[in-house]
Amino acid sequence: MFKVTINGLETEIEKGATVLEAAEKVGIYIPTLCHHPDLSTFGGCRVCMVDTDGKIVTACRAPVADGMVVKTDTEEVRQVRLSNVELILASHNEDCQNCTRNNSCRLQEVSAFVGINQERMSRIRRSVEPVKEDDSNPFFHRDFTRCIQCGICIRTCEEINGVAAIHFAFRGFHTKVSVLGDKPIKDSKCESCGECVVRCPTGALYLTRPETPEREVESVCTYCGVGCGIKIGVRGDRVVKVDGNRDNEVNRGDLCVKGRYGFDFINHPERLKTPLIKKDGIFVEASWDEALDFIADKMSDIKAKHGADALGGISSARCSNEENYLFQKLFRAMGTNNVDHCARL
């Protein structure tokens, strides 16, 4: 264990920890923009700079040393942080009212902390690159005027989802997050899982239908057998949002495109809520008991007339492994091996 002193507060922390982690341990806030606990460190935003033993370093990358003395609020630290945030704001869309992340924006939080003020900002030459928004994805849009090039989306795509659909393209001031060939994101290998949107610290990646829920209901995603934990955001009797449940051991907050964005069917007027049985050429609502009896009768008939191999069952990927196991058992008990699964087709 290393002994570290941060702003006079002593703490012990294991070797290999970063200064940022040590500060978190003693409850000292260090502003960050490109850091995310789920991801590898980047060190590009330079707003987490602190003074360690008289040297200015990035807290997110610097490893602690035994006996290290960290100061997070020297004149020099304040100046470098303030200057960096001012520079980010210089080319950031300043229309916060029309941003979905207004009031939940990390850049706003950090700006307030470092003490952005109008007098100083009046010296800054503003220039926002007029890059057209990418609205090709039905679930989220990309607003480049709000992007701060923190690279969190890029690392998320690569490290969380393993897709690596996006990366930095171009150079210097013209750097932007892009897909291969700088095409719209719908033409890339992006799977629309939305993990990047969840982690974007600003409104650069925003939901096309942003609605703030009134309450959250914990549940399990029904799309497949994995059983990801979800938090369903509800407003009135409508589902307006689905988030991954970070406390769930199965998925630790991660979701795929279906689980995250495929909730339209819940409130859809055409949603089937009961089984339907065709009577005289017309589908008629029925109870589950009725439907199961109907199927059992039909299958017994077929087996009696044509033998068990005239029967076959196709199971669903929405079922769990256990359910699929039982399904094939059922058919084998009926005397046939004709069993298949949608994932195999």
Binding site: G44, C45, R46, S83, R125, Q149, R171, G172, H174, T175
Partner: peptide
């Protein structure tokens, strides 16, 4: 400004700001 790689804020944004001034 033209040759900055774009990785860190001070160089990416700072050279641009100085150039503008």
């Amino acid at each position: 400004f033209e040759e900055s790689c774009g990785q860190c804020v001070p160089c990416r944004q700072g050279t641009q700001q100085m150039l503008e001034v």
